[in-house]
């Protein structure tokens, strides 16, 4: 399965959606990715692909968003399989935290909001599958972080916490990590691929 790629950086709405629509109609690709450079285009392209029946995941990097849509072609023609006994049918949510404060405007407020966010994540229940920290986000998992009790609680509930090793190194806090597994980019990419839904906090 070859993935169709589309670069829509620099385009204003509704053009990213129009380009994506054109690609879907022309190629009918089962897997495609669209790169956009603003949150509105990200949301619009994600919606459009969702509407067209794609499973959508978003990877945010350096202010750009890579929106990936996949369609399981085999599922279209296959009969629906009975779930195997004991097989987990619940969707898997991965939460990607790439910052130590939530939103823009006031960083102190942002850090309080993120603390609150981490504390409230347990409300997702068993669907919360992985929690990934990178860049400034790794500071939440080290000594002195107010989030540690909430993170330990999540870990006890079976949530897999991944902490980016490169990032810990960058901030010189590799030894101070208190919770989760130190990980690399391959693990992170794999987790994002396997998750049914990725929630990205930046």
């Amino acid at each position: 399965m070859t993935a169709e790629k589309l670069d829509c950086r620099g385009l204003a709405c509704p053009n990213p959606v129009l380009k994506t629509r054109e690609l879907v109609e022309r190629s009918g690709a089962a897997c495609l990715s669209v790169v956009v450079d603003n949150p509105a285009a990200n949301e619009n392209v994600s919606r459009f692909l969702g509407r067209m029946g794609y499973q959508v995941s978003v990877l945010e990097m350096d202010g750009n968003f890579e929106v990936t849509g996949t369609k399981d072609e085999s599922a279209v023609s296959c009969e629906v399989m009975e779930p195997l006994p004991g097989q987990d049918q619940e969707s898997k949510i991965a939460v990607l935290v790439g910052t130590d404060h939530m939103g823009r405007g006031d960083d102190l407020l942002g850090s309080k909001l993120l603390f609150n966010f981490i504390g409230t994540l347990k409300e997702m229940g068993t669907e919360l599958w992985r929690l990934i920290f990178l860049n400034g986000g790794v500071k939440l998992a080290v000594e002195g972080s107010e989030c540690l009790p909430a993170l330990r609680e999540l870990e006890k509930e079976g949530v897999h916490i991944l902490v980016c090793g490169t990032c810990l190194n960058h901030f010189g806090i590799l030894e101070k990590k208190q919770v989760g597994e130190t990980t690399n980019m391959l693990d992170i990419v794999t987790a994002l691929q396997l998750a049914d839904k990725v929630i990205s906090v930046t």
Binding site: A12, C13, P14, V17, N38, P39, A40, A41, E43, N44, V45, S46, R47, F48, G50, R51
Partner: peptide, 13 residues
């Protein structure tokens, strides 16, 4: 049309 992703950036803002 919202489902189609035709929301202007200003509305998201």
């Amino acid at each position: 049309l919202v489902h189609m992703g035709l929301v202007p950036a200003g509305s998201y803002a």
